[in-house]
Structure formats: structure tokens, C-alpha cells
């Protein structure tokens, strides 16, 4: 089948549909996922086609959603639980961190929990409080969870397929500001392994490392940097736990400079871990310290200030300048 141009929302929708067709144990559950099709329409039409038994509007309780998803998984189902917005995952934090993440280890490998917890995340859409959070570091900090995030529709389709098939729990973060961007999706093409990073743009002078919503921004920044005569490489991390350090290392050994960009706060964000490990792996190759661009040590601001708070092309280029000034 030829590639088709889909929005990320449509790609996720088709991916869920395919997973439900392939495996009768796959369930979709969450607030307003049924008749409404989710507030972003990711589950549009699924309840109509698969019935309320497989696509369930839950009561309004995130702890209940994840807790019962765990129970369903114990019973042999593969639940795909939707959390309506990033900021509302915290009522489920106890279930995710103390239960979902640890059951496999506690049972000495006897119990597997193939649960996917999907949620839109990140800012840039002018939303009200708690609708623009980037909670990936909390989850990546918890052993037992896999944490992934697509940056485009094709990855969204395939990474969701792979996440649903995973034997481990997966936190699946969807960059909501990219939901309506289109990309060619080939549903027959063999994808990259779920946790492998991808060079999104080859370059020679510096590596911009990003994931989810910031990949597009970094590609645009790399275009802009051409005017300054700089050829930037952009690596799309795709997976935040585990992290594909080999791909990053190969890129950095080539370019000798690394700037990590994410919306999450810089302080103890994924960029911190990446900076530490890459410094260790590439110490003698680096021309500058690993630099980071991200959110500040402040609650996510009200929408009138989010452009100030979030990384922009200008802030990325400013940091690129700093990397070249070392």
C-alpha cells in the first residue's frame, strides 16, 4: 500500500484501529473516548465499530483508569488507557509508579503488564493551566516504565503499534501541538525499533537533539542556521526510556557539539542525563559542553507567557551560538 498523508491524530486513530483488529485483547479506555472520540478525536469512531465493551468511557478518575487497566492486564487484556491531558495524569501517579512500573520485578518476572498509557503532552496551544505539561522526566525516572514520544504522524502510527505489542508498560506521550501536522504514513514499511533514535536531518557542525514537539522546531532552527553557514544535524530521540545513546554518540563524535532541546524544565530534565552520559562517552570529541534549552524552574505559565517560557527557534540558535563560542 502506498504511503498516505495523515495528521498525527488520524495516524494514531488508525493505529489503534489496526491493533484492535489484530488482537481482540486490545481495549481502549478513558474519559470521553467513546461517543466523543476523545477531546482530540484520537479514538474517533472506535466505539461505534468495536462496541462499548472494547472502547469504554470510564468514570472521571485517573487512578481508577490506570488501576483497572492493570487489573485487566492481569486478566490477559492489553489496555490502552487514555489520560485526557498531561496535567491530569498525577491522580494516577500512585498506580503508575508504585504498581504498574514494579509488578514485573515484584513477581520475579511472572507477571507482565502490557499496558499503554497514552496522553497528549506539551504546550504551545494557548491552553489553560494543567493542559501543557511535560511530565516525561517523572516517568523516565521510574524503572519499569518505557517512555516514548513520536514527533510525526508516521512515527505515531508505528510507535503506538510497537507500544501496544510491548510486554512492558509504556507511557506514550503525544505532542499535542503536532496533532494536526501531516506526514506520509506507510503502514507497510518496516519501522525502526521502538527505542531507536533517528537522524532527522544530517549535518556536520553541531547536533540538535530533540523529541516530540521540539523536533519540528529544531528542523526549522537548522534551516535558519544555514544562513549563518552552519550545517546542523537534528536527531529525533523518540524514546526517553530507554535512551539510544549509541545514535547520539555517533552523531556527536561527528559534529563535536550537542544542544539538547525539550519543553520540560531544564533542571533535572532528560537533557541532564543526556549531557552527563554523552560527556562521559564523547569527552575527547567535544568542542563545547553539552548545552540545554528547555523550560524554566517555574510552573508552566499562563498562556499569555508560554511563548516566553517555551524554547523558540531564537533561543535554540542563541544556544547554538554559545556552543560555537566555546
Amino acid at each position: 500500500m502506498a504511503a498516505r498523508t495523515l495528521t498525527m491524530v488520524k495516524a494514531l486513530n488508525e493505529s489503534l484501529r489496526k491493533a484492535m483488529e489484530d488482537d481482540p485483547k486490545v481495549l481502549v479506555m478513558g474519559e470521553d473516548v467513546g461517543r466523543l472520540g476523545g477531546v482530540f478525536r484520537v479514538t474517533d469512531g472506535l466505539q461505534k465499530d468495536f462496541g462499548e465493551d472494547r472502547v469504554t468511557d470510564t468514570p472521571l478518575a485517573e487512578s481508577g483508569i490506570v488501576g483497572t487497566a492493570i487489573g485487566l492486564a492481569l486478566r490477559g487484556y492489553r489496555p490502552v488507557a487514555e489520560i485526557q491531558f498531561d496535567g491530569f495524569v498525577f491522580p494516577a501517579a500512585n498506580q503508575i509508579i508504585t504498581q504498574l512500573a514494579k509488578m514485573h520485578a515484584r513477581s520475579l518476572g511472572k507477571v507482565r503488564l502490557p499496558v499503554v498509557v497514552r496522553m497528549p503532552y506539551g504546550g504551545g496551544i494557548g491552553a489553560i493551566e494543567h493542559h501543557s505539561e511535560s511530565p516525561e522526566a517523572y516517568f523516565a525516572h521510574t524503572a519499569g516504565l518505557r517512555v516514548v514520544t513520536p514527533s510525526n504522524a508516521a512515527d505515531a502510527y508505528w510507535m503506538l503499534q510497537q507500544s501496544i505489542r510491548s510486554a512492558d508498560p509504556v507511557i506514550f506521550l503525544e505532542p499535542k501541538r503536532r496533532y494536526w501536522e501531516r506526514a506520509d504514513v506507510d503502514v507497510d514499511e518496516m519501522p525502526l525499533p521502538l527505542h531507536q533514535a533517528r537522524v532527522a536531518r544530517a549535518g556536520t557542525d553541531l547536533t540538535l537533539l530533540a523529541y516530540g514537539p521540539m523536533v519540528r522546531l529544531c528542523l526549522d532552527a537548522a534551516e535558519a542556521a544555514r544562513e549563518d553557514g552552519r550545517d546542523l544535524e537534528v536527531v529525533d530521540l523518540r524514546s526517553i526510556s530507554p535512551i539510544d545513546f549509541d545514535t547520539i554518540q555517533a552523531s556527536v563524535r561527528k559534529t563535536r557539539r550537542l544542544v539538547v532541546v525539550h519543553e520540560a524544565p531544564v533542571f533535572l530534565g532528560p537533557g541532564s542525563e543526556i549531557a552527563a552520559r554523552i560527556t562521559e562517552r564523547c569527552f575527547y570529541h567535544l568542542e563545547s559542553p553539552v548545552l540545554r534549552v528547555g523550560g524554566y524552574h517555574s510552573p508552566y505559565p499562563s498562556s499569555r507567557l508560554e511563548e516566553e517560557y517555551l524554547p523558540t527557534i531564537d533561543r535554540v540558535l542563541d544556544t547554538v551560538d554559545r556552543a560555537f563560542a566555546f
Partner: peptide, 11 residues
């Protein structure tokens, strides 16, 4: 209603 979820599905 809770968005699209009717009271019958809450309680």
C-alpha cells in the same frame, strides 16, 4: 454531563 460522559456512566 461531564464533557461527553452522562451521569449514568459516573454513578
Amino acid at each position: 454531563w461531564a464533557i461527553s460522559t452522562p451521569i449514568e456512566k459516573q454513578t
